[in-house]
Design a protein around this nucleic acid. Sequence first.
DNA 1: GCTACCCTACTCGGATATGGAATGTCCGAGTATGCTCGG
DNA 2: CCGAGCATACTCGGACATTCCATATCCGAGTAGGGTAGC
Lengths: 160, 160
Amino acid sequence: MKTGRGVEWAVHSCVNMAWTPAGEAVNSARLAAYYKLPGAYLNKQLQALVHAGVLDSVSGPRGGFHLARRPEHITVLDVVLALEGPEPAFRCEGILGNVPDADQEQNYVRTCLISQTMRQAELAWRQALARQTIAGIADSMERRFPQDRVKAVSYLAAGT
Amino acid sequence: MKTGRGVEWAVHSCVNMAWTPAGEAVNSARLAAYYKLPGAYLNKQLQALVHAGVLDSVSGPRGGFHLARRPEHITVLDVVLALEGPEPAFRCEGILGNVPDADQEQNYVRTCLISQTMRQAELAWRQALARQTIAGIADSMERRFPQDRVKAVSYLAAGT
DNA sequence: GCTACCCTACTCGGATATGGAATGTCCGAGTATGCTCGG
DNA sequence: CCGAGCATACTCGGACATTCCATATCCGAGTAGGGTAGC
């Protein structure tokens, strides 16, 4: 029960993209240098976000990644699911259906109370993540540490 | 972001132990045969529960595992944490502290809003799991499928 | 018949393989930019 | 001076290694129970 390292990287990357002027792209090598991360691997993670429709990519000089839609409409859950996959974290294999003389017609995953408990807990987790948008986090961070945005944006733009 | 297979097995095992008469132990080979699971591996998972103080073990003939305390005082969260480890699922490495000219005195993990969001979501998940006890699940399952308890207990006791 | 001892079989416990996913790296495909050359 | 064409460097994109952890297995340590022999 561990999330990949890329989740933290991806959310920070999205916040930075929310800060950069519209129409500009942030390239992954520059982002990786800023946070001291393996560049090619960060690139791979951002590709997953493109595949999920969270980011758009631009090739060539002055290329990079930018948000595919307005940051108010991108939730933290979107980013997490893009990287970790949409399937539930709890693996229920319905072992109740393996017992001797089990009723083959019954849906043991649906009716199993343990499975229901796990699904409900995971729903609470997802709802909490869905309540936070990239825009909300970006705004809060800027209010709390105004100089951080300035520093990040100027550093990332220096790649020109 | 996946839980191990053993979580489902362990919770079902605990429910069965809540059903067995007090003073008797359930051995892992019999449990594994009932649910068609790899016996030695189930044994290993239950060992983790012993290490965490959820189960007690008894060696030798008529040996096995039994709950270490009353099933009303064992939550699903206890079982999950015993197997997956108590540390948070979200790995925050505080990459904000890696940026150039970062303030080394500041605790970036504590103040990072992304980290806070993740911690809050995970707290909701844990609270949902902590609300469900083994006793509660066992009672509900018995109310809904009364014959299942009879079948399981008699099968497991047949190892005598 | 009763008791003490030993032997056996059974179960946990941890050390030991294996496979697959997460992590990390590398090179090719495609494109915008800027330069060059001709009109 | 202006515009079209081309060379170039830059960035993404996916194919290719490597490391680590979940999964699975096996054998030794310890124990309870029963059988046996002696009193």
